[in-house]
Design a protein around this nucleic acid. Structure first.
Length: 569
RNA sequence: GCGCCCGUAGCUCAGUUGGAUAGAGCAUCUGGCUUCGAACCAGAGGGUCGGGAGUUCGAGUCUUCCCGGGCGCACCA
């Protein structure tokens, strides 16, 4: 890319100037000295404000510094260079070089936009919804976010592992197991707080068929009035009186619900590389288990203490607002402890970076998890969190309720069946993730410009439609006129890698959606003003090349977004 | 009460590590199909960037205080 070469030259020049002035500015040069893509044609192709930022250090006026930089900047691609306003340096690139760059995109194909800027291994943990029921709409947002983030990271050179953490132990699973058994064997047993809904009834029926003892009757003696106590009594009773049945039911429920979840994720093209089961963390009492290893690690490093019979982690030494219990008085690990053990396992698998995609309601969890991670990690490892906020569904101007009293809820599957997976991806990704979003179902169904998904697909379809009609010679020289007349479109196509790099580093998949929308808009405008198939063969050839490269960039973007480009609509 | 997130056009939202005149779409108004797909394009109006103070060549962006909204503050998971 021309821009990379310009950036390198600029950094070298400023470094030289700093050296002459006896200034050590390597950090500033790294951070502040670079070219931006100009937002206006008048400002050239690229602009830098580095002279404004560094004038103080150099004890020069910004324009004086800019002048010194400009005198040395003689990159062969530069057509014209000027200093404007308070000290901006604007660079105009030779039209011929832009034309060459455009032709070069064709040679790269879908590798255009692929980066080699990052190294190392990343674990992205996302979805990790409890296997107690189908995914709801909110899970979908996290799922799509995690997937596209993974795509971007992979595209930039990282070795990415996508992981789903399965909470297959603990109280929620006990309640799920009870729910299944009650549904299978107790007619009209109404226990507040158990899982209900069609999927439970269906699973219960299936489960019953797998058991030889078909007419089992379950009975309960005195049950507490307190909802939670009662649920635990039911679980304990079932588990103790029929341990084999209990284990079979638990296994059956978890396996089958995971299958439902996995199937739904597949519909969205989301595939996790690993499914990590909480139950595999082992027992806190066995020293080789991840759970015990993580506890011992923190203990050995001197960050634990005993209080009220429990074992605590002094997380307040690491920016947490209160200390946390790891092991209860009764010897049972807390949920937090299991998550610490899980992260110890991630650390031992030697990932350089662990990214957790969390629902924003878990944000309070970040300081304590970071604290434990920082204690256990090696000094090259890092943890990051991405939060996603709630989704509100609107239909006909009214907020739509996503759950009912009966435990039924409007699931991700329901939404997908209503709209299709790709339009949902586009809408979910369009908004910044840490921002509650209003999802307008009517708009998502609309097939018009109002709907950014269709608008973008339509641009791709138009590209294809044109390219089917006429072939072109990719080597033929392109006139300056065609390059200059289509600045708005080409600036996006030619700088695609720079944008992708930024979206990856900023962890902002939503920016990619906005990029595609804007690229589509530029193409639609180009389409109206510049007939591609026309009598002038040279002009036609150039425009076909522009169309082809635009198509490539849209296609590549769609792939990163996990959206299937449509040849026809 | 403490912590995190958010507040930009009537609505839904962007806004490039602080940059040049704050942008899209919807809605309103005007114009454009005999031709590559009008599922589109061109144009107009619409703003105290929640409010005040500060930092500096420059603030929607950073700091601080206030106002308003969401979420979280367990030996639950």
């Amino acid at each position: 890319m021309i821009l990379d070469s310009l950036d390198a030259d600029l950094k070298n020049i400023v470094a030289e100037l700093a050296k002459k002035a006896n200034l050590s500015l390597s950090e500033e040069i790294d951070r502040l000295v670079f070219f931006d893509i100009s937002t206006e044609k008048d400002h050239g192709d690229y602009a830098t404000s580095c002279a404004l930022k560094l004038s103080k250090q150099f004890k020069l006026s910004p324009r004086e510094l800019a002048d010194q930089i400009v005198q040395q900047l003689n990159n062969t691609s530069i057509e014209k260079i000027s200093i404007e306003g308070p000290g901006f340096i604007n660079v105009f690139i030779k039209t011929e070089d832009k034309a060459n760059a455009l032709q070069n995109i064709l040679a790269q194909g879908l590798d255009w936009g692929k980066l080699e800027t990052h190294k190392g291994s990343v674990l992205v943990e996302f979805v990790s919804s409890n296997p107690t029921g189908p995914l709801h709409v909110g899970h979908g947002r996290g799922a799509i976010l995690g997937m596209v983030l993974s795509n971007l990271l992979e595209n930039s050179g990282y070795q990415v592992t996508k992981e789903y953490y399965v909470n297959d132990a603990g109280r929620q699973i006990a309640i799920l197991t009870s729910s299944l058994l009650l549904n299978a064997y107790c007619d009209d047993f109404d226990a507040d707080g158990t899982y209900e809904g069609e999927y439970i009834h269906a699973l219960a029926l299936q489960f019953k068929k797998t058991q030889s003892d078909n007419d089992l009757t379950l009975s309960f003696d005195s049950l507490s009035d307190d909802k939670d106590e009662r649920l635990d009594q039911i679980s304990a009773h079932l588990k103790n009186t029929s341990p084999e049945l209990w284990n079979a039911a638990r296994e059956f429920a978890v396996t089958n619900i995971l299958q439902i979840i996995k199937g739904e994720l597949e519909e969205f093209g989301i595939d996790h590389d690993t499914w990590f089961h909480e139950s595999s963390l082992g027992s806190i009492n066995k020293s080789e288990s991840d759970l015990a290893k993580s506890f011992i690690d923190i203990e050995n490093k001197g960050h634990t203490y005993k209080k009220d019979g429990a074992s605590w982690f002094k997380s307040t030494d690491f920016a947490d607002d209160k200390d946390r219990v790891l092991v209860r008085e009764n010897g049972e690990p807390t949920y937090y402890m299991t998550d610490v053990g899980y992260h110890k396992n991630k650390i031992d698998r030697e990932y350089d970076l662990c990214i957790n995609v969390f629902g924003a309601d878990h944000h309070g969890y970040i300081p304590r998890l970071t604290a434990a991670f920082d204690v256990m990690k090696n000094d090259k490892q890092d943890i990051e969190f991405m939060l996603y906020q709630l989704v509100n569904l609107y239909e006909d101007g009214n907020k739509r309720s996503m759950s009912t009293r009966r435990g039924e809820f409007y699931s991700l599957e329901d939404l997908r069946k209503e709209l299709g997976p790709d339009v949902i991806k586009f809408f979910f990704l369009e908004k910044k993730s840490d921002h509650t979003m209003d999802f307008d179902i009517n708009l998502a169904k609309e097939e018009s410009k109002n709907n950014p998904y269709f608008y973008s697909q339509y641009a791709y379809v138009r590209c294809n439609s044109i390219l089917r009609k006429k072939r072109f010679n990719p080597q033929e020289k392109i006139s300056d006129q065609e390059i200059n007349a289509n600045f708005d479109l080409l600036v996006k196509v030619l700088n695609f890698p720079k944008h992708i790099k930024e979206y990856t580093e900023e962890r902002s998949p939503h920016s990619l959606v906005h990029f595609v929308k804007e690229l589509a808009a530029s193409f639609h405008s180009f389409y109206e003003t510049s007939p591609v198939i026309c009598d002038d063969e040279a002009v036609s050839n150039a425009r076909l090349l522009i169309t082809e490269t635009t198509k490539l960039v849209i296609e590549k973007s769609f792939r990163l977004l996990n959206v299937k480009p449509l040849e026809k609509m």
